[in-house]
C-alpha cells in the first residue's frame, strides 16, 4: 500500500510555519517513512496529480490567488489543517483589516516613510491577483478540519498532530502545545 500523501502551501504567511515543520529535526526521517510529500514547496510539485490525505495550509487569504489555492487544497485533501496563527486568525497580514484598502496601498507604495517610488506607480498589472477587502482566516473561506495555532506552531505541536492523525488517533494537543504566540 502506498504511503499517505501530504501537501503543504503558504498563502499569506511568512513560511515560518514551514520552517517550524522542518524543525522536527531527525523526526523528519520518521515522517518520510510514514508519508509521501506531494504538492508542496518542499518538493516543488506544482499541481495536484493525486488525492492527498492531509493538507497543511500556512497563512490566511489576502488575495484571490490565496483563495484559489486554498480551495484547490480543500478539493484535493481529505483532511485540511490550518497551520499557524495566520491561517487560524489572519495573523500579521490581518493588521490591515482596520485600514481601507486604498489607504493601505497608498501607505505601502506612495506615502510610507520608507517608500522610494519616484514614478508614483501602484502595481496594477492585470495578471496580479487582486487583494481581498480583508484578510480572512482559512476557515472563513473553506471548511478546516484541524487548527494548529502558534506563530509558528512549535515543531513538537506539528509532529504531535501529524503523528496522531496518521495513526488514526484523535488530535488532542496537551496544554504545553497550545500556544497563540
Amino acid at each position: 500500500m502506498s504511503k499517505p500523501k501530504v501537501a503543504t502551501c503558504s498563502l499569506a504567511g511568512c513560511f515560518g510555519c514551514h520552517m517550524s515543520l522542518l524543525d522536527i529535526d531527525e523526526r523528519i526521517l520518521e515522517l518520510v517513512d510514514l508519508i509521501e510529500f506531494h504538492k508542496t514547496p518542499l518538493t516543488d510539485i506544482k499541481r495536484f496529480t493525486a488525492r492527498c490525505a492531509v493538507g497543511l495550509v500556512e497563512g490566511g487569504c489576502a488575495n484571490e490567488e490565496n483563495v484559489e489555492v486554498l480551495r484547490t487544497f480543500r478539493r484535493h485533501c481529505d483532511v485540511l489543517i490550518s497551520l499557524g496563527d495566520c491561517a487560524t486568525m489572519g495573523g500579521i497580514p490581518a493588521l490591515r483589516n482596520f485600514v481601507p484598502l486604498e489607504d493601505c496601498l497608498r501607505e505601502a507604495y506612495l506615502a510610507g516613510p520608507s517608500v522610494y517610488n519616484p514614478g508614483g506607480d501602484v502595481p496594477n498589472d492585470i495578471e496580479l491577483p487582486l487583494l481581498l477587502d480583508k484578510v480572512r482566516p482559512c476557515h472563513e473561506v473553506v471548511k478546516i478540519d484541524y487548527f494548529l495555532p502558534g506563530c509558528p506552531p512549535s515543531a513538537d505541536t506539528i509532529w504531535a498532530a501529524l503523528k496522531a492523525l496518521l495513526s488514526g488517533e484523535p488530535v488532542e494537543l496537551p496544554y504545553q502545545l497550545i500556544k497563540y504566540d
Binding site: E64, V67, R71, R74, R75, L80, L130, L131, L132, D133, K134, R136, H139, E140, V141, V142, K143
Partner: peptide, 12 residues
C-alpha cells in the same frame, strides 16, 4: 467544503 458565506466577488 467551500464556505458559502465567503463571497469572492464581493471580497474583491
Amino acid at each position: 467544503g467551500f464556505r458559502r458565506s465567503f463571497d469572492l466577488e464581493e471580497a474583491v
